[in-house]
């Protein structure tokens, strides 16, 4: 057993400036990460997803979440070959983990054969890496190896609408009926709803109008969805950001009555408190 080398930070022969900088880099904290909100979202996602391979719903949900929904779904739909012979060794990200169909592989399986990624495989050379969406047949399946090939047929149902929700309203509306069984078909809806809400969340900081529109769209399209709480919180915060304080307060009251102890309540209350001192006129921003 080879002993580990002395860390640069602890090595007196290393330049003090380097060690000082490394010491600063070690003593950091993560700022701005909403741990409670993230846990809440994760709970929603995992509640409708089955761990490990074997479930097409789980595969679609997890894979869609991991890849933004589009690339592998399209790749699978167009007949991508997930078999090992179709895989390109140079495109392997780090190591051959999880090659087995169960999604869990021995830690060192095939590791000795794994060179570092070339620049093209690392994404450093976009010209040589066709867009996964534009050229699905060239997508490296090992980068998405959690995919279950058996999900092919199920996945095809989602490719008509792709990762975007725009053209999916017709398909989705049948799931809004309370009488429908909430099993397989609900998975596509959950994925699309999650994408919509994620997009709304991403727009919230700089484009509150867009965030509000997306949250409203989610409200309209997925009235009994999985992420009602989060999208309503986004809508309230977007309204506040737009200066529509009265409307935000009207929505906040039932929201806080229902989700007052939820993961997004604190953010809503904070946004309301920040907006109140300047809310006399309540005039919408242009």
């Amino acid at each position: 057993m080879t002993s580990d080398p002395t860390r640069l930070l602890d090595d007196p022969s290393v330049a003090s400036s380097l060690r000082d900088d490394l010491a600063s880099a070690v003593q950091v904290e993560v700022a701005g990460l909403d741990l409670a909100g993230g846990l809440h979202t994760l709970q929603h996602a995992t509640a409708t997803s089955t761990p490990a391979a074997g479930s097409s719903l789980a595969t679609k949900l997890g894979l869609g979440a991991a890849l933004g929904g589009g690339a592998v779904v399209l790749w699978l739909a167009l007949g991508g070959d997930p078999s090992p012979k179709a895989l390109t060794p140079a495109a392997e990200p780090i190591a051959a983990v999880e090659r087995s169909s169960t999604g869990v592989a021995p830690a060192n399986e095939g590791a000795g054969e794994l060179p570092e990624q070339p620049a093209s495989a690392r994404g450093d050379a976009p010209a040589s890496i066709p867009s996964p969406v534009e050229s699905p047949a060239t997508v490296d399946p090992r980068a998405h190896e959690d995919v279950d090939p058996s999900a092919h047929e199920d996945t095809q149902a989602t490719t008509g609408s792709g990762p975007r929700h725009d053209s999916s309203h017709g398909n989705r509306s049948r799931h809004d009926d309370a009488h429908d069984p909430p099993e397989a078909p609900a998975g596509d809806d959950v994925l699309r709803e999650a994408q919509l809400v994620a997009k709304a969340r991403a727009k919230l900081g700089r484009e509150p109008a867009a965030a509000l529109a997306l949250a409203e769209e989610a409200e309209r399209d997925f009235p009994t969805g999985q992420l009602v709480e989060e999208r309503r919180a986004i809508a309230i915060r977007a309204l506040l950001a737009l200066g529509r304080v009265d409307e935000a307060q009207r929505r906040a009251e039932p929201f806080l009555a229902t989700y007052g102890r939820g993961a997004h309540a604190a953010a809503v209350r904070r946004s309301l408190a920040e907006a109140r001192p300047t809310s006399e006129t309540d005039s919408p921003r242009p």
Binding site: G38, L42, T46, T50, P51, G62, G103, V104, G205
Partner: peptide
């Protein structure tokens, strides 16, 4: 700005791996 979503994705993959 990408980190919250990336963190979610990481733990979703962890979930799917069991």
């Amino acid at each position: 700005q990408d980190v919250p979503d990336l963190v979610q994705e990481v733990f979703l993959v962890a979930h799917r791996r069991g």
